[in-house]
Design a protein around this nucleic acid. Sequence first.
DNA 1: AATTTTAATCGTAATTTTGCGATGATAACA
DNA 2: TGTTATCATCGCAAAATTACGATTAAAATT
Lengths: 110, 110
Amino acid sequence: MGTTKTAAFTQADIAAAKYAKALAHPARIAILRILVERRACICGDIVEELPLSQSTVSQHLKELKESGLIKGDVEGKKVCYCIDAQVWQQAQQVLGGLFAGYLPRHTSCC
Amino acid sequence: MGTTKTAAFTQADIAAAKYAKALAHPARIAILRILVERRACICGDIVEELPLSQSTVSQHLKELKESGLIKGDVEGKKVCYCIDAQVWQQAQQVLGGLFAGYLPRHTSCC
DNA sequence: AATTTTAATCGTAATTTTGCGATGATAACA
DNA sequence: TGTTATCATCGCAAAATTACGATTAAAATT
């Protein structure tokens, strides 16, 4: 059906999946790396660094904005994007917590 | 076009996106949580815990297996799934590294 | 040997994602 | 005011994702 049965899962799982989905494309990872490194960045500069058209980059930025991970600030003609520290930390905890939950041992079934 | 321009990005970004994509659905998060908690689990038990059909769960398991995060061990009639410790740690580092790269400060553009 | 159990795969349908060019909207500039 | 620059949105096409029932394959049971 293509419709994800989101409602049937826990809030924690839905949140984790939401953040993971925002990261689930190399272009969006690349954008986030730029913002992490530069602290903030004009939209146009991001477009120049990526091998994608302006409209496609704009779409990826929109998805990242909708996940909450980044914010966009209109500065006259340009738009400055940056990481939302609060949401970033939240995503880090949600996903980090999942990974941290697994403690490797020598006894394993497979 | 629907085709992701994967080839145009760095290996690190592709790897990060690949692991994130594996986590990008509540059902797969739920499966991983079960495996983290139980250390290993029979396929049938996972199907029972999720609000999805057997074939759908099987598909999610396949995706997780293709990402490398889990392994499946055939045990007679049943199949035992568990986390692949090596790949798990790799994903933890790749995604954790991205998050750790951002150090929040008071000076922010937006 | 026939049946049952377990899980993968196939076929199908609806939806979402990815990507781009074209078009719009808004602000800055001449 | 007309033009240019910057970025979002629209419309479209191709492909991928999500979901399920039905079928298949293989092992275990009877």
